[in-house]
Simulated scan of single mutants.
Amino acid sequence: MAVSLRYVSSASPVSLVIATDRTLIALDPGADPRLVEHLWQQVSDGADFESLVGIMPAESAGRPLSFVLIGDIVERADGASLMALVNGPTGFDVAAAGAPQHIAPSGSSPWLRTSLQHVTHVAIGAQTDAATPQLPLAAGVVAVSRVDVSIGHAERETASDAPSSHESSSSVLLDAHADAHDGQTVARVPGSVVVTGPVRLANVPHTPPTKMFGYRVNGGQAFGLDLPHRFGRSPRVASGGDARLVPLLSPTKTVSATHLDVRQVGDAVVVSDLGSTNGTSIIEPGAQWRRLAAGESVAVPAGTFIDLGDGNVIEVMPGVPLA
């Protein structure tokens, strides 16, 4: 297990972030520097959540202080548990128990205190373009427009910039306005059962990639295509296979259990219908919608939309150059 932090630097920061692998505090950029220094010292000394709650002020520099305090992050096999205190309207985004949520006070109270279980990702700040580089952060104080935290095994790390090598790295950008949708939950699952619909990659060059492409479901979180991805109501992969499984909601069962395979091959994104019952439709930039034949594979450019049914639309995101 590991906690990975990445941030987007900004000349006009949205937050001052104090971060370690167990605590994350996001403050108004106008917070008193003496408060920032004091909090950093407490976090560096290993202060727990309750201790930090006791010293978080309602005001700083003569005005109300908006902040997010996340602490007592404890890693577990199925994601982390954590405590959170929010003051002000901004809040934060989280993927917990397989569903994205936006955590912020509601009603007349400016405060919200909560505990969360099975957390795999946390994000504070506005959604950024998939091509916007993120920088790694081990521990420290940074002025940021966004910070992303990934909790889990290395293959589930966040990275909305290009990885510096061909190691497994999945791009995660939690959208504060994204609908709660299982298609935004990505889990790497080693193969265990057989699935029909082999992927045929005819006429696709297997050259080393120079870019990392990605995708998102229904305009939500962006994920990197570092591994093949299988989409469906309850997607599976053949024994010995290696893929990320992306479950989609489909109340009418229009989406097949294992419906679609999307993977990067060299600098091509290959979309493969896996013999789905109700079919797959795609629309490439500047073209018309067309339906794939059952089991058909096709290389598609960035900007392509893939419709699986029941409102599940996948967008192929632009590639980010690899170092």
Results as ranks from 00 to 15, higher is better:
Gln41Ser: 15
Thr304Asp: 11
Ala323Pro: 15
Pro228Arg: 09
Ala31Pro: 00
Asp242Cys: 01
Val246Gln: 03
Thr280Tyr: 02
Pro110Gln: 11
Phe49Gln: 00
Arg146Ala: 10
Leu82Thr: 02
Ala58Tyr: 01
Pro208Glu: 09
Asp129Pro: 00
Val271Pro: 12
Pro29Glu: 10
Val147Ala: 03
Ser297Phe: 06
Met56Cys: 09
Ile55Gly: 04
Asp226Asn: 15
His118Thr: 12
Ser164Arg: 11
Tyr215Pro: 00
Leu65Met: 08
Ala123Pro: 00
Val142Arg: 15
Gly309Asn: 08
Glu167His: 12
Ser15Phe: 15
Ala159Lys: 10
Arg34Gly: 01
Ala202Glu: 14
Ser9Gly: 11
His206Val: 13
Leu112Ala: 04
Thr196Lys: 10
Ala97Lys: 09
Pro247Tyr: 05
Ser108Ala: 14
Val142Asn: 04
Ser81Lys: 11
Pro235Val: 05
Thr23Met: 06
Phe223Lys: 04
Val36Arg: 13
Pro235Ala: 04
Arg244Thr: 11
Arg216Cys: 12
Val122Met: 06
Val14His: 10
Ser115Gly: 12
Val189Asn: 08
Ala131Thr: 14
His206Ser: 12
Phe305Asp: 09
Ser160Tyr: 01
Leu249Asp: 14
Val74Pro: 00
Phe92Pro: 01
Gly275Trp: 08
Thr210Asn: 11
Val74Ile: 10
Thr114Glu: 03
Ile124Gln: 05
Pro105Gly: 06
Val194Leu: 13
Ser272Asn: 09
Arg200Leu: 12
Gln127His: 04
Pro89Gln: 13
Ser234Val: 02
Val53Cys: 14
Val271Ser: 09
Leu308Met: 13
Ala126Asn: 10
Gln134Thr: 14
Pro133Tyr: 01
Gly88Ile: 02
Leu112Arg: 15
Val86Gly: 03
His206Phe: 13
Leu135Asp: 12
Gly91Phe: 04
Leu308Pro: 04
Ala176Lys: 14
Gly224Leu: 05
Ser108Val: 08
Val94Cys: 07
Asn203His: 15
Val255Thr: 08
Arg113Lys: 11
Leu85Ala: 12
Gly71Arg: 09
Gly286Thr: 09
Ala104Ile: 01
Ala99Glu: 11
Ala293Arg: 14
Ala302Glu: 13
His166Leu: 15
Glu50Asp: 15
Leu82Phe: 03
Pro209Asn: 06
Leu85Met: 12
Ala302Arg: 07
Glu167Tyr: 03
Gly266Asn: 05
Ser234Ala: 13
Val300Pro: 03
Pro198Met: 05
Gln117Asp: 09
Pro29Met: 12
Arg188Ala: 14
Val94Thr: 09
Ala162Met: 04
Trp289Met: 11
Phe67Asn: 03
Gly224Ala: 15
Ala58Met: 07
Leu137Phe: 07
Val149Met: 15
Gly71Ala: 05
Leu116Asn: 02
Glu75Asp: 05
Leu322Val: 02
Thr23Ser: 11
Tyr215Thr: 07
Ala302Thr: 07
Thr207Ser: 08
Pro136Gly: 06
Gln101Leu: 13
Asn312Ala: 13
Lys211Asp: 09
Ser234Arg: 15
Met83Arg: 15
Pro228Cys: 04
Trp111Thr: 06
Ala299Thr: 06
His166Pro: 00
